[in-house]
């Protein structure tokens, strides 16, 4: 009898090693990273930080399409840090409001827009230098 009880106790302990799981389908934050084409920032390291927290909430690597996803549990500004071994990466702020709804934002700066506005600024600066120099001469 004692042996049987011992075995039963041992069996209950075995349940503690049985990894349980549950599946739910909820709205999460998904960030897609890319340089020129989708998937060219795949399998790169990232860290997700909850608002005012120095310890990462989630760490991992982007998927084959260069995406990462996390499920925020409090409102505030979440921060996602991305690193690739070759020194590329960025830090992204994600705003989450009290009802855990996520404001969708994109960087939205196309190569054409960046080129044109950057060139305009560059030429403006050199024009100022030119006219200042001309004036002083």
């Amino acid at each position: 009898m004692k042996v049987l009880l011992f075995l039963l106790l041992l069996l209950s302990d075995l349940f503690a090693h049985n990894l349980q799981h549950s599946i739910s389908y909820e709205k999460s934050v998904t960030i897609t990273l890319y340089f020129a084409h989708e998937g060219d920032f795949s399998f790169q390291r990232y860290e997700v930080y909850a608002p005012s927290n120095a310890i990462p909430f989630q760490v991992g690597r982007t998927d084959a399409h260069g995406r990462l996803s996390f499920l925020p549990d409090i409102s505030g500004t979440w921060r996602v840090k991305l690193f690739s071994e070759d020194g590329h990466g960025k830090s992204i702020a994600v705003e989450v409001n009290t009802t855990a709804q996520i404001k969708e934002t994109t960087s939205g700066d196309s190569l054409l827009w960046r080129s044109l506005s950057g060139l305009l600024l560059l030429f403006s600066i050199f024009s100022v230098i030119y006219f200042m120099k001309k004036e002083s001469n």
């Binding site: 340089f35 020129a36 084409h37 060219d40 920032f41 795949s42 399998f43 790169q44 690739s84 071994e85 070759d86 590329h88 190569l111 960046r114 080129s115 950057g118 060139l119 560059l122 030429f123 050199f126 024009s127 230098i129 030119y130 120099k133």
Partner: peptide
Amino acid sequence: KIPMLSGLSAIAFVMMLIIIPLPGGTT
């Protein structure tokens, strides 16, 4: 030489914007 320098700086600016992806996820 300022107009020429501004033109070459602009070329450098555009060249740095054009990203060339390489195998292994680097650019």
